[in-house]
Design a protein around this nucleic acid. Structure first.
Lengths: 165, 165
DNA sequence: CGCTGATTCTTGAAGTTTTAACCAAGGGTG
DNA sequence: CACCCTTGGTTAAAACTTCAAGAATCAGCG
């Protein structure tokens, strides 16, 4: 847990500090870049686009709210607001879950699918231009391994929230 | 995958898709984790903490607004709001720039420095626990190189905005 | 059944970020 | 100086996120 007595904080080494700074810059710039790209070309922020992608890959283009939130790594609350907005735009529709009366399914509408298919090529281009065109195949593998490791260390088993935190 | 609107969308390969997904998960979870950690322990989001760090490293603990925004990779507008909030909290003070009457300096206050020094150990611990304790030294080097490359590809030379986009 | 606690999802309010103007001061140029 | 364009920074409004609370259903159990 958090043992930080008044002793020695154990700072980052120069290499670590450099890596951390680079990481922060890269992720900030990239997220910003993709957010603008999608806002301009598809009229929605990156996270919302990610939700449509998840839905498009799901069995009948629908997913339980909680499952969608887990896949996208966001809170249920955030998802609720997001789906409300996407519903207002007509890309997504809510649907009562037959098996559990508490549940809701988020369903990707036909129009949502069209918007997604229209935006996807440009988005992939942007991602490719920012990352995969600039990295060697070995680096892509390295990146995947590093991210897997970091993500695994932050997953569910947290404490008092169902799956996040 | 599926159709191709005009020409060839050139989708991501399986390896690339996997890396991209892993990247999104890791960065989302990490940013979320650090935001909560700092909100809890220091009463501010991660970006604001980064601003205090920048200021603490600057010559007389002060920086021109634009320079600070560049260092932190955020827009001037966002910085304006952030500094307004930090000013309200007493961690930062504004100061007219003597050499350029349009300019403003953001100055880290003594209280701001205390808050920063108090929060730093816990934050470093969190970063270390999430990343550097889990990666090999080689991976740290790989991460830095990858992030450098990506960041360099997204830097200034954009078009209609001074330095961002 | 009636109770209790957990799970699902939503909501309102407060805080943060984006977007698009906007103003004031610099820096030429003629 | 008059003009015009750029730069530094702010602001209002809209969009988005977080936080805490709440309503409804489910599931176990006596």
């Amino acid at each position: 847990m958090s043992n930080e007595p008044a002793g020695e904080p154990h700072w980052l080494s120069d290499e670590e500090q450099y890596a951390w700074q680079s990481y922060l810059h890269a992720t900030t710039l990239l997220e910003d870049h993709l957010d603008r790209q999608l806002q301009r070309d598809a009229g929605m922020p990156h996270v919302y686009y990610g939700l449509l992608v998840q839905l498009s890959r799901a069995p009948r283009r629908r997913l339980r709210m909680t499952e969608l939130a887990q896949n996208a790594k966001i809170t249920r609350s955030r998802l609720s607001h997001a789906v409300a907005r996407l519903e207002k735009s007509g890309w997504v529709r809510r649907e009562d879950c037959p098996s559990d009366k508490r549940g809701q399914n988020a369903v990707l509408t036909d129009e949502g699918l069209r918007v997604l298919e229209k935006a996807a090529p440009g988005h992939v281009s942007a991602v490719r231009a920012a990352i995969f065109d600039r990295l060697s195949p070995e680096q892509v593998g390295q990146l995947a391994a590093i991210c897997r490791t970091v993500a695994d260390g932050l997953q569910p088993q947290g404490a008092d929230l169902p799956w996040l935190r």
